[in-house]
Amino acid sequence: MIINNLKLIREKKKISQSELAALLEVSRQTINGIEKNKYNPSLQLALKIAYYLNTPLEDIFQ
């Protein structure tokens, strides 16, 4: 099972779900679904998340 630290990292960087969704060009519901482990992001989306949060991919999804 993948450990998902997206919410923790996003909140630590003081970025809202809506702000991150806008940067990634996805819906806020997509971010919410990823954070609640209801949706697994594509590799492309996971890499974009890591880029915009300036955090290694391995720290977000373990």
Rank of each mutant, 00 (worst) to 15 (best):
M1S: 12
M1P: 12
I2A: 10
I2N: 08
I2D: 06
I3S: 11
I3C: 14
I3K: 14
I3T: 13
I3E: 09
N4Y: 04
N4D: 04
N4M: 05
N4T: 04
N4R: 03
N5S: 06
N5H: 09
N5A: 06
L6V: 08
L6F: 01
L6Q: 02
K7I: 05
K7L: 07
K7Y: 06
L8Y: 10
L8I: 15
L8T: 14
I9K: 01
R10T: 02
R10Q: 02
E11Y: 05
E11Q: 12
E11A: 08
K12Y: 09
K13R: 12
K14D: 08
K14F: 08
I15W: 05
I15Y: 07
I15T: 04
S16N: 05
S16I: 03
S16Y: 03
S16V: 03
Q17W: 05
Q17R: 09
Q17C: 03
S18V: 13
S18K: 14
S18H: 10
S18A: 14
S18Q: 11
S18F: 08
E19V: 09
L20C: 03
L20V: 00
L20K: 00
L20G: 00
L20E: 00
A21T: 04
A21M: 04
A21D: 01
A22M: 13
A22D: 12
A22H: 11
A22K: 14
A22F: 10
A22C: 11
A22W: 07
A22Q: 10
L23D: 06
L23Q: 09
L23N: 07
L23S: 07
L23F: 13
L24M: 06
L24Y: 01
L24C: 15
L24D: 00
E25C: 14
E25G: 15
E25T: 08
E25W: 07
V26D: 01
V26W: 03
V26F: 03
V26R: 01
V26N: 01
S27M: 04
S27D: 11
S27I: 03
S27K: 08
S27A: 06
R28Q: 14
R28L: 15
R28W: 15
Q29P: 05
Q29Y: 09
T30V: 15
T30F: 14
T30S: 05
T30Q: 07
T30Y: 15
I31E: 00
I31N: 00
I31S: 00
N32M: 13
N32S: 13
G33D: 15
G33C: 15
G33K: 15
I34W: 09
E35R: 03
E35Q: 00
E35A: 03
K36I: 11
K36Y: 07
N37E: 06
N37I: 04
N37T: 07
N37S: 12
K38F: 13
K38Y: 14
K38P: 04
K38V: 12
K38R: 13
Y39E: 07
N40P: 13
N40V: 15
N40W: 15
P41G: 03
P41K: 01
P41F: 07
P41N: 01
P41C: 09
S42N: 08
S42V: 05
S42P: 12
S42C: 07
L43Q: 10
L43R: 12
L43V: 09
Q44R: 13
L45W: 02
A46H: 01
A46F: 06
A46L: 09
L47P: 00
K48A: 10
I49S: 00
A50I: 04
A50P: 00
A50N: 01
A50C: 06
Y51N: 07
Y51G: 06
Y52W: 09
Y52K: 04
Y52G: 03
L53H: 02
L53F: 07
L53D: 01
N54Y: 05
N54K: 10
T55N: 03
T55V: 12
T55R: 03
T55Q: 05
T55Y: 07
T55E: 10
T55P: 03
P56L: 06
P56Y: 06
P56K: 09
P56W: 04
P56T: 08
L57D: 02
L57P: 05
L57N: 02
L57A: 05
E58H: 12
E58S: 13
D59C: 14
D59G: 06
D59Y: 10
I60N: 00
I60F: 06
I60E: 01
F61Q: 02
F61H: 02
F61G: 03
F61T: 02
F61A: 03
F61N: 02
F61S: 02
Q62T: 11
